[in-house]
Design a protein around this nucleic acid. Structure first.
Lengths: 157, 157
DNA sequence: CTGATTATGGTCAAAGATGGTCAACATCTT
DNA sequence: AAGATGTTGACCATCTTTGACCATAATCAG
């Protein structure tokens, strides 16, 4: 079995039932698997992405950590389509706006959230001289992270 | 847990209800936590700054003290200060996160909004190869637009 | 009074403790 | 063989902790 797969599995077994998150030490994990610490980052960036229903937070320095937050299994599945197909790797401001409004109309998210997301996604928020393609990529990532946040919020209630 | 976090928590528990300020002795605190006195300054300068909503007064010499004051701002005032002074033309992900959390703590915005904004502002939302400076600029614009959106929402009600 | 002594708090730089990024190299799939 | 996926290591960024040295206020001895 590949190292990456083993690490992925190991991490997934760290969760207690119903716990929304686990915390780990990069160096400890790397030592446990006798691999380069950056290998952990590789696993995280390929298997614990928003598309997979996970969000990551971390801190450097003494007492540093990596925290992985997940949404419920069922929701993970149901949002796969939304995140991967509907948003994808890049999305225009226009398409993003349409998506937000549509989600609000169908009651998936609140109108307030839709407008807040829209504010973050509109062109003025990215008024800097970089290629449009970059902007669409950033927008997609931003949108996914926001949707994930809303999803996580819903699960806590 | 980090020493700094423990000290931060300890200090925050010193507040009596409705008291706007708390007073402490640097050396006593340091002795209590068995750390270098300058550690206290570190905690103060990283967790009780104006950006965190605190002001500090102190006096040296016999009978010296450190006084920590919670600053209170009205909602409107708070927003204007944020948009004009605090966010500015560029802001790091960490500073943006501190800002969001502080706004939620002081009740200016809801915790949900804070987390949603945070999701949009975290580094993963901008994981593309462009200069950090660009990212900080985009983040500032994004944050301002989101704050404006919340402000507008509030005004309609 | 005044100068010395004592009691505080402040600054800053160095060292330690983590995690992040990126590009080269390796291995697996097709 | 070519492209996708996985692995590593060098170098970077950030956060924490400590200690040496500095500044200021109160008190005490003469």
């Amino acid at each position: 079995m590949r190292l990456s797969d083993a690490i992925e599995e190991f991490i997934k077994e760290l969760w207690m039932p119903d716990e929304p998150e686990v915390e780990l030490k990069r160096n400890e994990l790397a030592e446990y698997f006798r691999c380069a610490p950056s290998q952990i980052n590789y696993v995280l960036s390929t298997r614990f992405t928003p598309d997979h229903g996970y969000a990551i937070e971390s801190r450097r320095g003494g007492g540093g950590f990596i925290r992985i937050i997940r949404v419920q299994r069922g929701r993970r599945e149901s949002f796969r389509y939304l995140l991967q197909d509907r948003v994808g790797e890049a999305i225009s401001a226009r398409d993003a706006q349409i998506l937000c409004l549509q989600l609000a109309e169908q009651g998936t998210i609140s109108l307030e959230d839709a407008e807040l997301m829209n504010a973050a996604l509109k062109p003025q928020s990215q008024a800097v001289p970089i290629p449009e393609q970059m902007k669409d990529t950033i927008r997609a990532k931003t949108l996914k992270n926001m949707l994930l946040s809303i999803l996580r919020r819903a699960q806590q209630q």
